[in-house]
């Protein structure tokens, strides 16, 4: 086994030599560990080192193998094509479902994606709510930037809001889906060191009622709107600002 060469400067990157093509080999391929099995076909590198992560599947170059392995090769190629198709078609996969609702995962608000992740798995098992909630928390470094952005234009009606606050606040309600019989969970700060929640939040007669205590620390708070018997249906975000010295 060769070792990387040492040089005075940065060592040159060692590359596996391209093996020379020999006559086609059929049947079981001799001694394990041999390395001269022909160059891989162009464009079929399984690793995308740059931005080339969406490369279509190319021929895999297993023509030298016996027919039974060739069949296996075709089977796994079909599996890969199916996976790529599902991924591109935004079907039943998790990211696909989220992308279908929110667009490209790269281009959109990951906080919203994570919140949607909550809803998707809430359908499967209540335990996932905690897990997905922690994902949302872990992606929280993007939430501050999006809290004051306009609500997602999903076309889904939000409950009307009654807000009481002695400080300047911004609010935002994002609904995943139409829902009746809502209840609101306490709003939790996105600052992990700030454990004073906003508990005076409720839904009464279809109205979302939020009261911000006078001593509530400034910051951004999030909570879920939960439809009875059906799980999370939306989120509430409240951003509390410090009152300036002149009271503005």
């Amino acid at each position: 086994m060769k070792k990387p060469a040492n040089t005075a400067d940065a060592p040159a990157r060692l590359r596996r030599p391209e093996p020379e093509r020999t006559e086609p080999n059929r049947g079981i391929l001799g001694v394990f560990g041999q390395s001269s099995w022909g160059a891989p076909p162009q464009g079929s590198h399984p690793l995308g080192f740059d931005e080339d992560t969406g490369t279509p599947v190319e021929p895999t170059g297993h023509g030298f193998l016996d027919d039974s392995v060739q069949e296996a090769s075709e089977l796994v190629d079909a599996h890969i094509r199916q996976g790529l198709k599902e991924s591109a078609g935004a079907d039943e996969s998790l990211l696909g479902r989220m992308a279908a609702l929110y667009g490209s995962a790269q281009a959109n608000d990951l906080t919203a994606l994570a919140t949607q992740f909550t809803r998707v798995y809430a359908d499967m098992a209540t335990q996932w709510i905690d897990i997905a909630g922690s994902i949302r928390d872990q992606l929280g470094n993007l939430r501050g930037a999006t809290a004051s952005a306009p609500a997602a234009s999903t076309g889904i009606a939000s409950p009307s809001m009654v807000l009481r606050a002695s400080k300047p606040v911004e609010t935002r309600v994002d609904m995943f889906r139409a829902a009746g019989s809502l209840s609101a969970q306490p709003l939790t700060s996105e600052d992990a060191n700030q454990d004073l929640r906003i508990t005076t939040v409720s839904v009464e007669n279809g109205q979302l009622r939020i009261t911000i205590p006078a001593d509530q620390p400034a910051g951004t708070y999030h909570g879920l709107l939960v439809e009875k018997g059906a799980g999370p249906a939306g989120t509430v975000t409240v951003r509390v600002f410090e009152t300036s010295e002149d009271g503005s």
């Binding site: 596996r16 093996p19 391929l29 394990f32 390395s35 099995w37 690793l47 080192f49």
Partner: peptide, 29 residues
């Protein structure tokens, strides 16, 4: 058993493709 050996041979071939740009190390071996 022979078929599993053939598949293993194909796996070694795929290993060569997947790690062809990676230096040989204890891990790749």
């Amino acid at each position: 058993f022979q078929y599993s050996q053939s598949l293993a041979s194909a796996a070694i071939h795929e290993f060569s493709r997947a790690f062809k740009d990676i230096p040989d190390t204890r891990d790749t071996v």
